[in-house]
Structures are given as structure tokens and as C-alpha cells.
Deep mutational scan, measured.
Amino acid sequence: GEEMDTAEIARQVKEQLIKHNIGQRIFGHYVLGLSQGSVSEILARPKPWNKLTVRGKEPFHKMKQFLSDEQNILALRSIQGR
């Protein structure tokens, strides 16, 4: 696969979550399948791509996919709003 700019992906995700008022817990649960603790760690201190294991890269693939389609963001927003 291609190398990803993990810091940039994390920054964009944080931006979207704040902009749409989506909590990290909801994002972690529905998008990444991770706990809030793992999510906040990944978003606060993303490791460089070449330092990640295959498993460590997974959340970034999912985040990139999440960012690529605004429908994903809107869907999360409606879950959050319940």
C-alpha cells in the first residue's frame, strides 16, 4: 500500500470531529472499533507510517476512508445526536 501521512490524517479527523461535534468515543466505536483511550492516543500522537505494524496501520486506513466520504461524517453526526 501507499505510505500515509498519519499526522495529517489525524489532524483532519480531529478537525471533522470538532466541526461536527462528534465525540471520540462514538468515532472510535463506529469507525475504528477501538476504545476512546486508543482513539485519543492515535489522534494525539500518531506514529509515523513506517513505524506502524500492519495492525497499527488499520485505523489510518479506516480514518482515510471515513474522510473520503462526507456521508460517513453525516451518519456519525446523526448517531451522536440521538
Rank of each mutant, 00 (worst) to 15 (best):
K14A: 05
N21R: 09
N50A: 11
M63Q: 01
P59S: 15
N50E: 10
F66Y: 00
P48G: 03
A75Y: 12
P59Y: 14
K62W: 02
V39E: 04
F66L: 02
G1L: 12
I26Q: 11
L17G: 03
L43N: 00
I9V: 09
L17K: 03
G37D: 15
R11L: 07
F27R: 01
V54N: 15
K64T: 06
K51F: 10
R45P: 01
S40A: 14
F27W: 03
L17S: 03
E3F: 15
I22C: 04
V39C: 12
G23I: 05
Y30P: 02
N72G: 11
G56Y: 05
P48T: 06
K47V: 12
M4C: 02
L52V: 01
Q65V: 09
V31C: 07
V39I: 07
Q80R: 07
G56A: 09
S35P: 14
V54A: 15
M4F: 06
I9E: 03
G23M: 09
D69Y: 05
K51E: 15
R45Q: 12
Y30I: 12
L34P: 03
Q71T: 12
K47L: 14
K57G: 03
K62A: 07
K47E: 12
D69I: 04
S78N: 13
E8T: 09
L74S: 10
L67F: 05
G33S: 05
I22A: 01
N50F: 06
P46E: 01
L67Y: 03
L32D: 02
L74Y: 09
R55A: 15
H61Q: 14
E3H: 12
V39L: 09
A75I: 08
S78M: 13
L76S: 02
R77N: 09
N50D: 09
V31L: 04
S78T: 13
A75M: 12
L32V: 04
I18N: 13
W49E: 06
E2G: 08
G56C: 06
A44C: 08
A44Q: 14
P48H: 08
K14L: 04
G28V: 04
N50L: 04
Y30N: 06
L17E: 03
A44P: 02
S40F: 08
A10D: 01
A10M: 00
K62C: 04
T6Q: 00
R11G: 07
I26E: 14
E2A: 09
P59W: 15
I42D: 02
S35W: 05
L76R: 00
G37E: 15
R77K: 15
S35E: 13
R82C: 11
H20Y: 14
I9P: 03
E41R: 01
G33E: 05
V31S: 01
G28E: 07
L76T: 02
P46R: 00
E3Q: 10
K57N: 03
A10I: 06
F66C: 00
L52I: 03
I22N: 02
A44W: 07
E3I: 10
Q36W: 12
N72Q: 14
N21L: 01
G33I: 00
G33W: 00
S35F: 09
F66I: 03
H20E: 04
F27Q: 02
L52G: 00
I73T: 08
W49T: 04
R25T: 14
R77L: 10
I26K: 08
S35H: 06
L17T: 03
V39T: 15
M4H: 05
G1V: 12
R45Y: 10
G1R: 11
V54C: 11
Q80T: 10
F60G: 00
L52H: 00
D69K: 09
L67H: 00
Q16H: 09
G37I: 08
V39S: 05
N72K: 13
I79P: 07
S35M: 06
G28R: 03
S38P: 10
L32N: 02
I18W: 09
K64L: 11
G33K: 07
Q65G: 06
L17H: 00
T6D: 01
G37H: 13
F60R: 00
K64V: 12
R25C: 12
G1T: 12
H20D: 02
A75N: 15
R55Q: 15
W49P: 11
M4K: 05
G81D: 14
F66H: 00
L32R: 00
L74W: 10
S68V: 05
S78Y: 07
E15W: 04
W49S: 04
Q65D: 11
R11A: 08
E58D: 09
L67K: 00
A75L: 11
R45G: 05
L34E: 07
H29V: 06
H20C: 04
K19S: 07
K64G: 04
E3G: 08
Q71L: 07
K62T: 05
L76V: 05
K47N: 05
L52R: 00
L76H: 00
N50R: 11
S78E: 15
R55F: 11
V31T: 04
K64M: 11
L32A: 02
Y30K: 10
T53D: 15
H29W: 09
I22H: 00
A7F: 11
D5A: 07
L67V: 06
V31D: 01
V54H: 12
G33Q: 07
G33T: 01
H29L: 10
L74C: 08
S35N: 10
Q24Y: 12
K64A: 12
S38Y: 09
E15S: 14
E15D: 07
I42M: 13
I22V: 10
P46N: 02
V39W: 05
M63Y: 00
R82W: 08
T6M: 00
Q65T: 12
R11H: 09
L43F: 08
I79M: 14
L43S: 01
Q36H: 12
K62Y: 03
M4P: 05
V13M: 06
R25N: 13
H61L: 15
